[in-house]
């Protein structure tokens, strides 16, 4: 199957590959996978006290489209507020990368990873508040 130029570009030069400290209270980690293809994707965000995503990193073991989807997601996340980040939809990723129908699930995985990273960050913040309120 032919990959689009944008997928190849992200695959060959993935942005923001790496790890953030998952124990940092400012960091939210999302870990998701697609059982039908054995892909695993980790996406992390670092959020400032003002609620802005200062940094985003990913690591994906999977096909070119899965790598490109998560790479693009980290690019889009940087500089956004948490609320803005939540508005990122898989269809936007699929459109930007010209993903064919059989690869749409890769963009779904990236959206899941974003949501899961945000949920992790929020649960850390809630736990911190609960602790402070004691």
């Amino acid at each position: 199957m032919a990959y689009s130029e944008k997928v190849i570009e992200h695959y060959e030069n993935p942005r923001n590959v790496g790890t953030l400290d998952k124990n940092d209270e400012h960091v939210g980690t999302g870990l998701v996978g697609a059982p039908a293809c054995g892909d695993v994707m980790r996406l992390q965000i670092k959020v400032s006290d003002a609620g802005v995503i200062e940094d985003a990193k990913f690591k994906t073991f999977g096909c070119g489209s899965a790598i490109a989807s998560s790479s693009l997601a980290t690019e889009w996340l940087k500089g956004k507020t948490i609320d803005e980040a939540e508005q990122i939809k898989n269809s936007m990723i699929a459109e930007e990368l010209h993903l064919p129908p059989v690869k749409i699930h890769c963009s779904v995985l990236a959206e899941d990873a974003i949501k899961s990273a945000i949920a992790d960050f929020r649960s850390k913040q809630a736990a911190k508040k609960a602790l402070a309120g004691q």
Binding site: L31, V32, P35, A36, C37, H105
Partner: peptide, 12 residues
């Protein structure tokens, strides 16, 4: 794809 349950967090 989409028909199968999500993998467990431990496995991932």
């Amino acid at each position: 794809e989409t028909a199968e349950p999500k993998p467990s967090p431990d496995l991932l």
